[in-house]
Design a protein around this nucleic acid. Structure first.
Length: 853
RNA sequence: GCCCGGGUGGCGAAAUGGCAGACGCAACAGACUUAAAAUCUGUUGUCAGUAAUGGCGUGCGGGUUCGAGUCCCGCCCCGGGCACCA
């Protein structure tokens, strides 16, 4: 019928070029407008390019930014590259291609893909962590950390991964294997740079309170920090001057301590081990030392240990208790020693049972709690079962003024701690699971430390004006194999002569971990070209904090905790003015791929699947298959490439579908058929406005109501990031208005504005067709008039005993009495209740009446 | 084991304690077309019934309420995180 099909390819290209040429999204540094800083977690530019998961968060923030610009905000919305990292280096090892070349190529590809989606980034603010003008400031922050005493070198057993030839942080080790590549990891002592994040543990914990983050993520951070309160108690070693201090969260259970356990690495072990037990102790220590973390802390909870032959004196009752060593006590937590109370700690109980150590019950379990936990109280009292819950203390008194009998657990903890403090043999104590951050990597492709190891053994930090310290050129990127980074081979670079004193030294060969660059990038976007300062204070004050930060939940702990730590340090030295960097955090849910399995549950790669009318079948065997969502993976061949989607349906469809699938934070399966639904909507919207006569005609009452209800719903839902329901409302609108012969201008203009954040290319094209010369980017967002949304009559649902039975129209705004009167006069309602007594009427004005008979 | 999410049609999902399933996909029927594509219209939770209509339905079992997908108690299942941290 003469409709010109919507040519999304041409239109999208046209407007992407327009935006780029006119710098439509260039953000003024400081403005009279209220500011809004909306940040995406910047990607690592991998060789594989974008997958559909990336644009999910990017689309969400882009819609929000475009919406807020139309609402008068000065929006900062930048993009950049977390470009140091292992894959480019491994590729260099394999092929000899310099990581900077690979990185550049990958960034170009990512940029092309991201631009093809029409995101409204201010590209003049692009940052790249591998750029020397950027990492100069990463190195500068390291100098500040060092100045504050927060960076130190320590020789500690680290997670050494032989296959990767590097040390890994605890967080990069999953189940005893490397997060990247799943290679085995063993323990090896090495000199490493450490950052004292533990000094900030309390603040990192407390300041979570003020953040608008999901409770789940905050809880994960709390667990990671792992604060516990208890007491340190000092025990004397029998027949010796040695003392051992243990940390316990249960000082109330001192009377139940029947043995003590030291970690095998504890320094005192060699001093106290008896001659008879020495060989056994040494053998056990040796065995544990060679164990990998997986073997040591792995899934098996089977207890092992060795008796030292020594005894400690329990300070509350003078009892001699045997001292053991066992690997279930960690050297790195607390004091590396525990008092064991097998009756009230499951780990101690398992150990005691295995080694025939007495179990002494000192808490009578709370009867109710024991019953619901299905624990036999008699067995606990007899030392045959373990009870870790509430109860009443028994067998817990001495003649030196400590009487806990009859107390509840909470009260007895307090009483015991006070008693210990009074006698100077213990004190209340706090511990954190959080460890200092291992900050060195034996790698080439990372930020070099601005550090020189001088010949006299001292450590010299480079001067600020010697930064950036750039990486030397190398031709061979293989790890040196000694545990040193490939930088150890760069002899010219390595040797350093102090320009003032002429003293010689050797540069640090470690590089910083990938987390370093991402710890502060959000600050550099604010002032990306500044070569005098990390960020200009006035600009920082205007833009910080980040108002909305969107990214994957995989960074729930590490990146976010590290960045918060650095931010607090920068706050302490006056570089930033906010205590926290990210005010609000939203995690987008993962997008899963469609996968197939046969009846035995075996996975079938997607290229072996044939979709027939009756469902999916195996291409070669003809077997019927079951469809289910699973993580996208190369092996399942179910990875969706945004390029393909854009080619077939366009960027606007891609954007709309990603938002229409479901709530932003939910995990959702990708279904290409669903893209066709929003594609139809795009074309319908095009025909409704682009291919229909636009007329200056008045809207009738119903049209006015729908238009304003749509403005209200879409505006509110966009503001609250409920994009899926906003899109639904736009569909409802277009389903109605596309039926019209002539499109009323008023409705067309408003609708195009509502659509603009979601499908910006289409909206720009329609906006131009409506006669506008300027981009729609800064057009004011439409306002709704509540008067038009009101209806004159509302339908009141009549329920009888809660079941819907009839519907009665009443004037809008009728109060309860009027509604009741009108409803009870209704013939249909009368018929329903004839012969019955109305016991009660519940009236919700404007909604329903429930008749109880 | 512990801590978070989550379980609603064939599928993705929606629903301030107030008509469950909006919107979309798929399917079926029809219109347009020589035909197809595109588009438009209608039907579509389930069971019984020609139908009007009625029964049953938000993982399972209880409870609160005039009224529960929504609130409370107890379980089951799925996803994520932590995991000998004393």
């Amino acid at each position: 019928m003469g409709f010109e099909e919507y040519d999304f390819k041409a239109v999208e290209k046209k407007w992407q070029d327009y935006w780029e040429k006119n710098k439509t999204f260039k953000t003024p540094d400081i403005s009279e407008k209220p500011k809004l800083y909306v940040l995406d977690m910047f990607p690592y530019p991998s060789g594989a390019g974008l997958h559909v998961g990336h644009p999910e968060g990017y689309t969400a923030t882009d819609i929000y930014c475009r919406f807020k610009r139309m609402n008068g905000f000065n929006v900062l919305h930048p993009m950049g590259w977390d470009a140091f990292g292992l894959p480019a280096e491994q590729y260099a090892v394999d092929t000899g291609t310099h990581p900077s070349i690979t990185t550049k190529k990958n960034i170009e590809n990512f940029t092309r893909q991201i631009k093809a989606l029409g995101f409204s980034y201010d590209w003049d603010r692009e940052v790249n962590t591998t750029d020397k003008h950027y990492f100069r400031w990463t190195q500068w922050i390291f100098l500040q950390l060092h100045k504050k005493g927060l960076a130190y070198i320590d020789e500690i057993p680290v997670n050494w991964c032989p296959a990767l030839g590097t040390v890994l942080a605890n967080e990069e080790v999953i189940d005893g294997k490397s997060e990247r590549g799943s290679h085995p990891v063993i323990r090896k002592p090495m000199k490493q740079w450490m950052l004292k994040i533990t000094e900030y543990a309390e603040r990192l914990l407390n300041d979570l309170e003020e953040l608008d983050w999901s409770e789940g993520i905050k809880e994960m951070q709390r667990n990671w920090i792992g604060k516990s309160t208890g007491a340190e108690v000092t025990f004397n070693v029998d027949g010796s001057d040695e003392k051992i201090t243990v940390y316990t969260t249960r000082p109330d259970t001192l009377f139940g301590a029947t043995y003590m356990v030291l970690s095998p690495e504890h320094a005192i072990v060699d001093k106290i081990a008896s001659a008879a037990q020495k060989s056994e102790v040494d053998a056990y220590k040796k065995k544990v030392a060679y164990m990998s973390d997986l073997e040591r802390t792995g899934l098996s909870n089977e207890k092992t240990g060795a008796f030292t032959g020594a005894y400690a004196i329990n300070p509350v009752n003078g009892t001699k208790i045997p001292i053991w060593i066992a690997d279930y006590v960690l050297a790195s937590y607390g004091t590396g020693a525990i008092m064991a109370v097998p009756a009230h700690d499951t780990r101690d109980f398992d150990f005691a049972v295995k080694f025939n150590i007495p179990v002494k019950c000192i808490i009578r379990p709370d009867a109710k709690e024991a019953a619901s936990a299905k624990v036999d109280v008699e067995a606990v009292l007899a030392g045959k079962a373990c009870w870790t819950g509430e109860g009443e203390l028994i067998n817990s008194a001495n003649d030196e003024g400590l009487v806990l009998n009859g107390l509840k657990v909470v009260d007895s903890k307090k009483a015991a701690t006070e008693w210990l403090e009074k006698r100077g043999i213990g004190k209340g104590a706090v511990n954190y699971k959080l460890r200092d951050w291992l900050f060195s990597r034996q790698r080439y492709w990372g930020e070099p430390f601005p550090v020189v190891h001088m010949e006299d053994g001292s450590i010299k930090l480079l001067d600020e004006n010697e930064l950036p310290l750039v990486l030397p050129e190398l031709s061979d990127f293989k790890p040196s194999g000694t545990g040193e980074s490939p930088l150890a081979k760069a002899t010219d670079w390595l040797n350093y002569t102090d320009p003032v004193t002429g003293k010689k030294g050797r540069r640090e060969t470690n590089t910083m971990p990938q987390w370093a660059g991402s710890c502060w990038y959000y600050l550099r976007y604010i002032d990306p070209q500044n070569d005098k300062q990390l960020v200009d204070p006035a600009k920082e004050k205007y833009w910080m904090p980040v108002d909305l930060y969107v990214g994957g939940a995989e960074h729930a702990v590490l990146h976010l905790l590290y960045a918060r730590f650095w931010h607090k340090v920068l706050y302490d030295i006056g570089v930033v003015t906010t205590k926290e960097p990210f005010k609000r955090l939203v995690n987008q849910g993962m997008i899963l791929g469609m996968s197939y399995k046969d009846e035995r549950g075996a996975l079938v790669p997607t290229d072996m699947v044939e979709i027939r009318n009756e469902g999916p079948f195996h291409k070669t065997t003809g077997e019927k298959l079951v469809e289910f969502p699973a993580k996208m993976s190369k092996s399942l061949k179910n990875v969706v490439n945004p390029d393909d989607v854009i080619k077939e349906y366009g960027a606007d469809s891609m954007r709309l579908y990603e938002m229409f699938m479901g709530p932003l934070e939910a995990v959702k399966p990708w279904n290409t058929r669903g893209v066709e639904g929003v594609f139809r909507f795009i074309r319908k919207a095009w025909r409704m406005i682009g291919e229909t006569e636009i007329a200056d005609i008045e809207l009738n009452r119903e049209q006015l109501r729908l238009l304003h209800a749509t403005i209200k719903k879409v505006g509110e839902d966009t503001n609250s990031l409920n994009f899926n329901t906003a899109i639904s409302q736009m569909m409802i609108f277009s389903n109605e208005f596309s039926k019209l012969e002539k499109m009323p201008r008023e409705a067309a203009e408003a609708f195009v504005k509502l659509l603009a954040p979601y499908a910006p290319h289409l909206a720009e094209e329609l906006w131009e067709k409506l006669g506008h010369k300027e981009s729609i980017t800064y057009a004011p967002y439409p306002a709704f008039n509540p008067e038009f949304i009101k209806v004159s009559e509302v339908e009141i649902l009549v329920q009888i005993l809660g079941k819907p039975k009839a519907r009665v129209m009443v004037p809008a705004g009728s109060d309860a009495a009027t509604t009741e009167k009108l409803v009870m006069e209704n013939e249909e309602v009368k018929a329903l209740i004839t012969g019955k007594t109305v016991k009660k009427l519940i009236c919700v004005p404007g909604r329903l009446i429930n008749i109880v008979i």
